[in-house]
Design a protein around this nucleic acid. Structure first.
Lengths: 148, 148
DNA sequence: CATTCATGTAACAATTAAAGTAACATCAAA
DNA sequence: TTTGATGTTACTTTAATTGTTACATGAATG
């Protein structure tokens, strides 16, 4: 498959809603920033709403964060938009009559869960507030160095 | 795309070569355990060889681990077989004229690198020796409980 | 209250990375 | 020299993501 950008685009949407709260917040306007299309934006917004991160209203282009940016972590967003939240995948078609093929699936499941857990612990430390702050800092740095 | 099983199959191959060292170690025999095909096995073995984890000889079905299983980590295997070693992917097509679209790529790259690093630290702690030991332990548990 | 424009959602097509298949050059071993 | 192995490439098939289109539903304005 193609590599998923859902997490990146979901962060983009949330950051956009927070930073550009005075601008047009329609799915079309957000899609222009993501360089994607309104349907994709609405799909992701639906997932974020079901994940308790976003409040939307049908018919009205007035999405709002459901929590403070400091109370939204990258892990929250990840779990909201990624159907398959697994970073690594066990091959579930191995020969059960072989010592290796018959046991490796359970062995790898445990190992992969440890890796997944380590990644999620880190994702939990990264808040939307930090990401928004970083975006704004980078923008200021650009302004400050303009025309040098 | 489909989810990659390359890491799982590569671990399978290495564990098979160590555990079944007295059996047929042809790519066809290994493919039967993986329930895949010989070409896939040979492709992965080629990557493992280039990664310095496996010693093979063209024309002879005598692959050998290039290091002790205790000196091979899940991270070594991951890096050997995954062309794109990134667990998360930045959307590299965002509107550069927007505050968010113009800065979020760099912002996410940093954040994703932290997550990647946390996962890799954990992968580094998981050795092939441990995975092999786990497979053998599970097999013994099956034998002990046979017919219960 | 009708028009306009928004979201919410689903169905379908297009894209792309992985896995399957086949072919063949090269090398080992009997 | 014959047989069978690996190493490698090209091509096909599969499947998850993204793009596209359509339309039901709700909000807002005159």
């Amino acid at each position: 498959m193609r590599y998923s950008h859902k997490l990146s685009d979901a962060v983009h949407i949330l950051a956009y809603i927070d930073i550009c709260h005075d601008d047009d917040l329609s799915s079309t306007a957000i899609a222009a920033s993501v360089e994607s299309n309104p349907a994709l934006v609405r799909r992701l917004m639906g997932a974020l709403r079901r994940g308790g991160l976003l409040a939307t209203q049908q018919g009205s282009a007035t999405p709002k964060l459901a929590r403070r940016p400091a109370a939204i972590t990258l892990l929250d967003i990840y779990r909201a938009v990624e159907d398959d939240g697994n970073l690594l995948h066990v091959d579930d078609k191995t020969n059960p009559h072989c010592i290796v093929g018959g046991n490796i699936q359970d062995t790898l499941r445990v190992a992969y869960a440890e890796v997944q857990s380590a990644a999620e612990v880190q994702m939990k430390t990264i808040t939307l507030a930090r990401l928004i702050g970083d975006i704004l800092t980078r923008e200021r740095a650009k302004q400050g160095s303009a025309g040098e």
